[in-house]
Design a protein around this nucleic acid. Structure first.
Lengths: 343, 343
DNA sequence: ATAAAGAATGTAACCCATTTCATCAAACCA
DNA sequence: TGGTTTGATGAAATGGGTTACATTCTTTAT
């Protein structure tokens, strides 16, 4: 049945025998070289090289009670927003000696829970999640959040204050994106928002509303469409927003993908961007540079979100609490060709 | 230092004690329920539920000599081509009880090797790689490929016949893409190829050449540009191709990303697609539906590549050799708006 | 020179589940 | 009814490291 892994044979005991020392010494020579005499160390390392020995990390993990694996949960790896985050997590983790186990939850709570169980089975030392749902069964920790295993919440926030979070200031993002449009002279601005109730979307909406109000403008509810950040919903949303008798001159998309969909719809409907209508969005994914027209967007520091999340999580695993639970990283408005003065 | 995981305490021994049986019986009750009397089984399961026991998978893996982890190596998770493949691998693996360890090698042989080393120490049961480089130090296995852990080579092929491969017929893809352009009446066709020497690119180029020759056309070397499949190289390549006095009326991009770059360049240069120039490409990534204009492309069955690769690998791990080492999946021409008759 | 401190190494327990082998009881057969 | 097969369970070895503790060999200090 199960094929036995191959170059097993050689274990620590074999090295020990051949080097004329005991297992413990081999272990020390490998992990705490300074705790072993130079002579012994050299001899051990020589035998290790000779026999091509690689320590079995499972055994080590079992004994030490930590696997040096971290899990990354995200709703959809296919989303270009997440890919750079994951890549950066992976790089950071690898540098610190951790491997990344990937889990695409498809935003399915059941899958999230299944995966979360991995923490209990000791397969992973901690989790980075991009979901607002923290899937751990609170009951199992007696309702005490502090007893949860290390978790870092990236990009999208849950409402447990005890959980460490890393992301951007979505309120400011919403405000700045809107202000960019206002500064260009737009007054009829639509919002192609994300799901209501989702923190990132709600915050951006607040920023949107406040920015308008500072110019004595109010939100036209006809011009607010709640999608799900996807291209398809951006397409649909843009069509919905443009159907009204009184049309907006600018659309603030709450995500780049939705903006791609919107650009597509607007083109099909025969509008020129930005001549007929401006489009701005949020995220700063790489594709935005190549759309037609290239997309003006408030970029999130995706790599930095990933590396920060990984660093915080690993610090946490290794016993170092971060100074703050809220880690807000800087966003950046990138002005390209999809926004302009209103006609 | 290292924080001890929390609800440790409860191990199999605890269940055993509490249920009045021995560890072995608990293990059997959990893994081979039919090998235990109904009464004992119920009692054990009851105690398991009561104490909230979850088996330590590290221990189990150590004992059984298999970790139920598979590693996925790919050059860049940020590439929209790979994301669906990875997602599909992950889903398939999860369904079969395996976790996926992700490694973004950035096409860096050193990183690949580093990671490959991990495979030994982490006791990863198998590997799916999207690189033509099989990074395992052959010396370490005495030059004997059969001693490598199970590997499946997806998308991009190495030249070891012993390695299982899953992917598409790139020659046919190249041919069909070209034929589509020929059928529309194009005779001046450029190729925005991938790196020379890379199997996928070379095969598509063969298909391209053969399709042209069947129409008594020859390849104009001015109209062949070798990029690296990236958007940036597509942009550059398109500009290079359009600089000649005699210009092509169609460009065959060897990858969707390059096509995005090409569309961007063509737009900037003032060409209308497809009125002035047609663009076709390969991959069928989701974004292609939303470009301007939507991209005609030969789609690869990305999900299927992933699921097939995962299935083959896990079968292999569990001792089942596939009928063939070459698993070629069907591609599909998707005609959208980026190709048309020549002016 | 010698006790005390320190460094190097060995012994054995430990992490926790799986699995072989032995044991014992119940069911089956002639 | 004695002998055998079958089924349930337990004892103990196992996988491969790590580490607390014990022991031995050096140094250093007096």
């Amino acid at each position: 049945m199960a094929v036995k892994s191959l170059n097993d044979a050689v274990a620590m005991q074999d090295i020990a025998r051949r080097a004329g020392v005991c297992k413990a010494t081999v272990s020390r020579a490998l992990n705490n070289p300074q705790r072993v005499s130079a002579k012994t160390r050299d001899k051990v390392l020589e035998v290790v090289a000779e026999l091509g020995y690689t320590p079995n990390k499972l055994a080590s993990s079992l004994r030490q009670g930590r696997s040096k694996h971290i899990a990354v949960m995200l709703p959809d790896i296919t989303n270009p927003y997440f890919a750079p985050v994951v890549r950066s997590i992976e790089q950071t983790a690898m540098r610190r000696g951790y491997s990344v186990i990937l889990n695409d939850t498809q935003d399915n709570p059941d899958l999230e829970r299944t995966f979360a169980a991995m923490v209990h089975t000791r397969q992973v030392d901690g989790i980075i999640t991009n979901s607002a749902r923290i899937p751990f069964d609170l009951a199992s920790v007696g309702g005490d959040v502090r007893r949860l295993p290390p978790i870092v919440n990236a990009s999208e926030f849950c409402d447990l204050p005890e959980i460490i979070k890393v992301g951007v200031n979505n309120y400011q993002i919403g405000k700045q994106a809107t202000e960019h449009l206002l500064n260009l002279g737009h007054t009829r601005i639509a919002a192609l928002a994300g799901p209501g109730g989702l923190d990132s979307s709600d915050q951006r909406m607040r920023g949107f509303t406040d920015a308008l109000q500072q110019q004595q403008l109010t939100v036209n509810t006809n011009w607010v469409y709640h999608g799900d950040y996807s291209m398809a919903s951006g397409d649909l949303g843009a069509r919905a927003l443009m159907q009204w008798r009184e049309r907006p001159t600018a659309i603030f998309c709450f995500g780049d993908l939705a903006a791609f969909g919107a650009l597509h719809a607007l083109r099909e409907l025969g509008y020129q961007v930005p001549q007929d209508i401006s489009v701005i969005s949020v995220d700063g994914i790489a594709l935005g540079e190549y759309t037609s027209p290239p997309l003006t967007t408030v970029a999130q520091p995706l790599e930095q979100i990933g590396s920060t999340a990984a660093t915080l999580l690993i610090d946490l695993i290794e016993g170092e609490r971060p100074p703050s639970n809220e880690n807000v990283l800087a966003h950046r408005l990138i002005i390209r060709k999809s926004t302009g003065k209103p006609a």
